[in-house]
Nucleic acid binder design. Structure first.
Lengths: 208, 208
DNA sequence: AGCTATTGTGAGCAATAGCTCGCACATTCG
DNA sequence: CGAATGTGCGAGCTATTGCTCACAATAGCT
């Protein structure tokens, strides 16, 4: 690895041609990272896959990391959108339904491209910029979940903030593990159990 | 990165001197990996920290990965030992106590050296050999947990195997995240909530 | 056509880091 | 002591890879 200096004023594409090239590079990068991993997914390989010269690649992205950052940001945005769309359909009738929505969105999000997701999850902690963005999104989800829980009177936890935090992390991490690491389990059973765990935790049946 | 060929018949130390050198290398590697991360923790740096020449380093480890593998295996062994020792103290009185033991062991295990643990967790999925070993240990823990749950009559779950799997993963992943990623939370509150989640999930209060 | 800004090219530079190999030093043992 | 074996050394080879730069091609406009 040579000079990694951002002495580069990358340009915004001003013609359609440029926009399309940029998109080709991004798509190729997603494939290459998914196939080879981040380290072995060299910029030359990405350029080759995108049918673009290496020079062009560096015209749009200042360095390799920046490509990954854009991929991650796009993924986070997509996840947020999915949640927002569900949100607009109104509050689920029961807490269990609400939890099922969470889990299912997470599963769908990961099922899309498990390999790429795995790379992103592995590489995220390395780039401080990425870590920051990921945390931002996560904080938003925690806050949203905390508010959501407040709407169900049957919820009874010691520390609502911590409960939301644990719930969000658990869904994210456990789903990611099962999907990306390719555990061989029945997804329906998995979903049911995970939903049960969250529901029983947050809204325990009261003793007589 | 140049030739990574294991054309090497690494030797077992036959003198005490060799054994000590090996240990110095391992200790240094743990420090260097924790401080610089895996990629930036170069073999030369490790050798320097260990006050050993790189030639000596490669006399005991065929390549860089092998050093990490040994560190991970040692850590896994340590964790298993800790669990076994508790196990010999007899079955905890309640399920909640049993869960608390799990969580606390995980926390202690991670509190030991969060940075190194983080590196190991991030790097583990890359080396197939490591992934294999980690899974082996995890399967053992799942089996152990499944058996443990069977001993508490109040446990009521749809799929005991899946429940054990989810419980093990949740503890491991969530604890790791909170400790290694340095989330700013009260550890006591965190422990309590996590234990509560597991307990309520596995042994829900029965309705009248 | 001609002129300019934008986009595209790819050989090759520079830096890095894993790892080797020939040799020197240390330990053990007869 | 001296031979055999084990241990330690570290300059430098080799391969890789992120990235630059001088130049070429194309698009848009008059």
């Amino acid at each position: 690895m040579p000079a990694r200096q951002p002495l580069h004023p990358r340009k915004q594409p001003k013609q359609v041609r440029g926009e399309r090239t940029r998109q080709r590079i991004l798509t190729a990068a997603a494939q290459v990272f998914a196939e080879y991993g981040f380290a072995a997914g060299t910029t030359n390989r990405i350029a080759e896959r995108a049918c673009v010269s290496i020079g062009s690649l560096y015209q749009y992205y200042p360095n390799k990391d920046a490509i990954l950052v854009e991929l991650v940001v796009r993924h986070l945005d997509a996840g947020e959108d999915a949640l927002r769309r569900r949100q607009e359909q109104g509050l689920p009738g029961t807490l269990e339904d609400a939890m099922r929505v969470f889990v299912r969105i997470a599963v769908e999000n990961h099922l899309d491209d498990p390999q790429l997701l795995r790379v992103m999850a592995e590489e995220a902690p390395r780039a401080p910029e990425l870590l920051c963005k990921v945390r931002e999104f996560e904080e938003a989800r925690v806050a949203y979940t905390r508010d959501l829980l407040a709407r169900y009177p049957e919820v009874r936890v010691g520390d609502p903030e911590m409960a939301a935090r644990i719930a969000v992390s658990t869904v994210e991490l456990v789903v990611h593990k099962v999907i990306a690491l390719g555990e061989v389990v029945d997804l329906r059973v998995f979903e049911d159990e995970l939903v049960t765990m969250l529901t029983r935790y947050l809204a325990p049946a009261r003793l007589p």
